[in-house]
Computed example of a mutant assay.
Amino acid sequence: MTRHTPPRPVDVEQLFPEVAPLRRQAVRLHPRAGSPSWRDSSVGGPLMWPDREPWPLCPEHRGSPMAPIVQLYAADALGVVEFPPASDLLQVLWCPHGHDGRWVVPEVHWRAAEAVGAVREAPPLLAGAPYGHVPKPCVVHPELVTEYPSWDLPYTLWDALEQRFAQVEAETGWDYQDHLSTAPGIKLGGYPGWGQDPQWPDCSGCGKPMDHLLTVASTEADAHSRAAWTPFEDEGVRYESAGLRLGDMGGIYLFECRTCPGRPFKDRFDS
């Protein structure tokens, strides 16, 4: 079933024209429990992994297979992220076990689906992973939405707009951060759904700020954001999603450099 996020409850760019140049497109994946195959885009589903390639193992836990987190075909990216030349498949895995100073250790792979050939079945994961670190298999329902920066809003602009944010909230009940800026849930592109101060990384190769690739969040929407971001199709409906619980219901954010060879990436955790 296609998901449709309601339009913002107020006209963001009319009320706050200063944020209009900062708008970005994101793809909400809307994962819902299901039975995806390796032919599908999915969260926590089987990957179209070549049989000729070994399955990735965690570099910090010898012999610990990485868990499939997200598989996304280019058609489901809806043009938000430009895939590398000759690639049409994005695959993200991570080691769900505890690490020194990190919640998970991810890997990002780009490949051409037609070149995969025979598909390797994922090995069973080692027991003992923390609860909520491995998503349940979910089908996805990609949807294009418009976002504006929340925690990533420049300090000077935040200071200039803070009083107007408060006035709009007092008059309408809609909070800029929770209801008008960044979409919650697992999404491609757009702005990270920070819960705390941003930790935007720079590329180790060129030194430039990296681009946000993917947010893997614990929930589709929390109690604060649900009123504005729940798709029409899910209003009043109890559904089962990916079942993630990362820290204190936080998220993992993946960033990449789109100019350096190999598309180097970094990850950040935010609780």
Rank of each mutant, 00 (worst) to 15 (best):
R245N: 09
R245K: 14
G250I: 06
V237Y: 04
D211R: 15
I252S: 06
A228L: 08
G250M: 07
A227I: 10
G243Y: 05
C206E: 11
D248V: 05
D222A: 07
R226F: 02
G251W: 00
G251E: 03
D248M: 04
E256F: 15
E233C: 02
D222K: 06
C206N: 04
M210P: 03
T230E: 13
G243A: 04
D211K: 09
L244T: 06
T219I: 11
G207K: 11
E240D: 12
S218Q: 05
V216H: 02
G247T: 09
E235L: 14
S241N: 03
V237L: 12
A217F: 10
P209Q: 11
D211N: 11
Y239N: 08
Y253L: 14
V237G: 01
M210V: 09
T215G: 09
P209G: 09
K208T: 13
T219D: 10
E240H: 12
S241W: 02
D234L: 15
A221G: 06
R245M: 05
E235K: 14
D222L: 08
M210H: 04
S241F: 01
A228W: 01
G251H: 05
S218V: 09
D234K: 00
A242G: 03
L244N: 02
V216Q: 03
P231K: 09
E256C: 13
Y239F: 15
A223E: 14
P209K: 07
D248Y: 11
T219Y: 06
D248I: 01
E240W: 10
F255G: 00
D222C: 13
L213F: 08
L214K: 03
P209E: 08
M249T: 05
A217H: 10
L213Y: 04
K208G: 06
W229Q: 02
L213W: 02
E235M: 12
L254N: 01
E240M: 11
R226S: 13
A227D: 11
S225M: 06
D211A: 15
F255S: 00
A242F: 01
R238A: 14
L244A: 09
A221M: 13
V237R: 14
D211E: 15
G250T: 06
S218T: 14
I252L: 15
D211Y: 01
G247M: 05
G207F: 11
F232M: 07
D234W: 15
A228H: 05
A242M: 10
Y253K: 05
L214T: 03
P231N: 10
L214N: 05
F255T: 00
K208D: 13
R238Y: 12
A227Q: 13
M249I: 10
D248S: 10
W229M: 04
E233Q: 15
G251K: 02
L246S: 03
D211H: 12
G243S: 07
S241M: 02
G243M: 06
G250D: 03
A221Y: 15
A227C: 08
A228C: 09
H224R: 14
A217P: 00
A228Q: 03
F232G: 06
E256M: 11
F255L: 02
A223L: 13
Y239I: 13
P209F: 06
S218Y: 08
E240R: 15
K208N: 12
W229Y: 08
V216F: 02
I252H: 04
S241H: 11
L246Q: 04
E220C: 11
T215P: 01
R226M: 13
F255K: 01
G243T: 06
G243D: 07
E256D: 05
E235Q: 14
V216T: 03
H224P: 00
A227F: 07
